[in-house]
Design a binder for these strands. Structure first.
Lengths: 349, 349
DNA sequence: TTGTACGCGTTATCAG
DNA sequence: CTGATAACGCGTACAA
């Protein structure tokens, strides 16, 4: 039997000939308990190797001090870093974090939500999956009066807070950067437009083109997923065009990497002939050859802020749900894959 | 109030004018309940949007159907893949997975264990942190009669099952491969020898040298951590020697990458002048230039097997703890960084 | 087949 | 300052 050795406040109370209530109060540092008994209880609790049963406590108090985080994949740099940020901010407050993966399936997402709600989680952080269209399962969270914070990928649901990147601006900055590197035929490897983030990056791209009087060419937009291979295929398609692009702005680093591989296979020089910009600042972008320019999403901060938004939400013991929308500025990390000036300098020397 | 809308079996029982016990039984598909009432209960439960309170259930039954996984970092390819494997195997059995990170700190590890035990977890999977020396916190798990399975990185504790790689063999194979590529001055970037895995890889390396009559040179062994930079420093040290190595076997992919960068900075040709072999088959090894030969640890399988070991353990409702030690065979993925034959062929053509 | 009554381990309320 | 008691929501002997 597993519970064989479990010691409860009852055991302590019997040993000390006091009531269980007093033991509970002593352990919880209730102010109206004598210093003497408090010390005594603390001491014997340690001696008897007492462990508080958080299940019982949670059942009684209606809160578990657990929060859930749902992400598409845990091994994406963005997500693991955001989780780290949430962790750093919430651990000092006594919260523990349950991490779930949706594997980009709306169905899994719904199941994870159910599981978390059943487990009486105190809050949910989530980045919606690519395939999430409906909002029924999100509504369940709200109906349950469980605080919810979206990060990075959100869905428009009234009353839900979110912490996201300014993806429109990011798309604009990336494109503008390429234009300033003297690129004029800029292709865009877009993610699934159903996700706001990709739509916004795309819109930012178009706006930059417009501002710099470059005509938007729909043939230059290829939809990719976040696999290397899809980046390769995109180059295949683009290089079938009469007017080959002279720059690639990819909405994801993996597709950017694939594109770069395919370009190199075709002996196309990067950045001299084609510049490449990726998105997410995955660790590998720094180490591949050439290093890839990429958009940093300040994920650690994203996680911390999401956690803070959550903490504010639970602090208010009012029923009114505050809706807070935080938008973070992106930061372009320029590396060799799009840095033609670097080459001009070398040539001059 | 969060619990405002919570509906319990009591509410259902009142609505149907039956006892809560009957409702409970009906929902749990107890065989001795009439089909009629079962259907009725199921129907109204759905109507009233009833959600079982897993906390109460867990408190009553003494099991939560939650398991904990503790890893150093979730964003390492090995760990995230193992987690995926555990997930795939355990989800169909109704388990949910709580993922924790130790960040390589024994102290964090101990805290996570405490937290998990308090939450009344049904089992713990863990890969010990680099700084873990003592086994007190591990003993706590055993004292609690909570099933424990080590994966990849273990500590010798009697009665604990484990699923690990055959690191000795892996070290041997990697070294042998380099020897067969005609390398004779093979350096080893070792991890912290306090961890069994690194010790075993090192021993395998030495054994291969011995079997092929190559003298072991302690100057060729540099300790690194899993950061790029430490791989660079290792090359700095090695290239101060009179006899420069002609091959690098690194116990980690990140150090291997750093080593490769530093070698390239010194205009040393890979693999023509120096061959490089890494460890873990991180995704990036395939995409850097040149692609890095690396040891695959079949992490998905590792996770699945660990889960199976756990399931066996909980199936036996006996008190005897079965100790099962699974050792998986490594698989060397040969890529350009150590494939001299590739170059010989090209030269010949 | 169903109802009654109790306990899982805590905490909160109300007396004292 | 402390003790007795109820309650959180559920499952299960025992009885009917």
């Amino acid at each position: 039997m597993k519970n064989k050795g479990k010691v409860t406040i009852y055991d302590i109370s019997k040993k000390l000939n006091i009531s269980a209530a007093t033991v509970s109060r002593a352990l919880n540092n209730n102010p109206k308990i004598s210093e003497k008994t408090r010390a005594l209880v603390a001491k014997t609790a340690k001696e008897m190797n007492y462990k508080q049963n958080r299940l019982a406590q949670a059942l009684k108090q209606g809160r578990t001090n657990n929060v859930g985080v749902i992400v598409p994949y845990i091994n994406r740099s963005l997500f693991s870093s955001v989780i780290r940020g949430i962790e750093e901010e919430l651990t000092p407050h006594g919260y523990h974090i349950i991490i779930c993966q949706s594997h980009e399936e709306a169905e899994n997402e719904a199941e994870q939500i159910n599981a978390l709600l059943n487990t009486q989680i105190d809050g949910i952080f989530m980045s919606v999956s690519r395939t999430t269209q409906r909002t029924d399962h999100i509504q369940k969270i709200l109906n349950d009066h469980t605080p919810l914070v979206f990060f990075d990928r959100k869905i428009e649901v009234p009353g839900v807070s979110s912490v996201v990147l300014d993806d429109f601006k990011a798309g604009y900055i990336a494109t503008e950067h390429l234009i300033k590197e003297d690129c004029h035929k800029i292709a865009h490897l877009s993610g699934d437009i159903n996700l706001e983030i990709y739509k916004n990056r795309f819109e930012g791209y178009k706006k930059a083109l417009k501002d710099y009087d470059i005509e938007f060419n729909p043939e230059y937009v290829i939809q990719v997923n976040s696999k290397i291979e899809s980046g390769m295929q995109a180059i295949d398609e683009l290089w079938n065009l009469d007017e080959k692009p002279d720059a690639i702005f990819s909405a994801g680093d993996y597709a950017a990497l694939g594109a770069m591989q395919e370009l190199r296979a075709r002996k196309i020089k990067i950045p001299q002939e084609v510049c490449v910009v990726g998105f997410s600042n995955e660790p590998f972008t720094k180490y591949v050859e050439p290093p890839i320019t990429s958009m940093d999403q300040t994920p650690l901060m994203m996680g911390k802020i999401a956690a803070q938004v959550f903490l504010e939400q639970v602090k208010e013991n009012t029923t009114i749900s505050i809706e807070k929308k935080v938008v973070l500025p992106p930061e372009l990390i320029v590396r060799e894959s799009s840095d033609r000036k670097l080459y001009n300098l070398s040539d001059a020397s």
